[in-house]
Write a protein that binds this DNA or RNA. Structure first.
Length: 225
DNA sequence: AGCACA
């Protein structure tokens, strides 16, 4: 499951890695050319190509935890989500060679939306409308599902009464992302996601783009600049 | 099937 998050969080950008070109821009990697021996020690290079061979589950989980810890502290601020992209790229925070996260991550953000090729439907928005949530699910629970996706901002639960009287009250939710691309990535990843893996007949998620775009980043008019 | 918050 965790690997699914990883896969989608950095959508297939890892696959088409630079064919032969080292780095047209500034991307000096002294640690690569310098001392390859030491690299074997770090699992980080493997993490960047996990989609090929996911063996080292433990190290992935470790990095995943680190990622979560760093991501949580910046949940509602779009800008602070950016470093998360770096983390998901398999670049652990511990990397001492990273001088400033600024430069590199700006480029990472450039494609953090992923699916530069997948055309978004015209009705795409940065907010997802999610149904199929079990009636007793919590906001925290839903957040756990969406938080790993890059661009995740916030989730809002809405309680609805079932139309059939006697049915359990339904829970809808709206999930905001920074961009529609990121929302689409999460939507594809979680479409049909089963809340209760034991009971295949019960809750499975159905996601659509919300009819109306997400709210203001919740700041209102005060977030100048 | 169902779409809320500012």
């Amino acid at each position: 499951m965790a690997d699914a998050y990883w896969r989608y969080a950095d959508p297939r950008q890892q696959a088409p890695m630079a064919p032969q070109q080292p780095a047209p821009l500034k991307r000096p990697r002294p640690d690569y050319g310098g001392a390859p021996e030491t690299l074997g020690y770090y699992p980080r290079e493997d993490e960047r190509t996990v989609h090929l061979a996911v063996k080292d589950t433990e190290s992935i989980n470790a990095s995943y935890d680190r990622y979560l810890q760093n991501g949580i502290s910046s949940y509602s601020t779009a800008e602070l989500v950016r470093p998360v992209g770096g983390g998901l790229n398999g670049r652990p925070v511990e990397d001492p060679h990273l001088p400033g996260i600024g430069g590199m991550d700006n480029r990472i953000i450039g494609y953090s939306g992923g699916r530069t090729e997948a055309p978004l439907p015209p009705d795409a928005s940065n907010t997802l409308f999610v149904e199929g949530l079990p009636a007793n699910c919590t906001r925290r629970e839903v957040s756990h599902i969406f938080r790993p996706f890059i661009g995740f901002q916030e989730v809002r639960l809405v309680n609805k009464d079932s139309r059939h009287h006697g049915g359990d009250p339904l829970v809808l939710c709206f999930v905001d992302f920074v961009t529609a691309n990121q929302a689409a990535t999460a939507m594809d990843a979680l479409q049909g996601y089963q809340f209760d893996e034991h009971d295949r007949d019960s809750a499975y998620l159905r996601l659509q783009f919300a009819r109306f775009p997400g709210p203001r980043p919740s700041g209102g008019p005060r977030n100048r600049r």
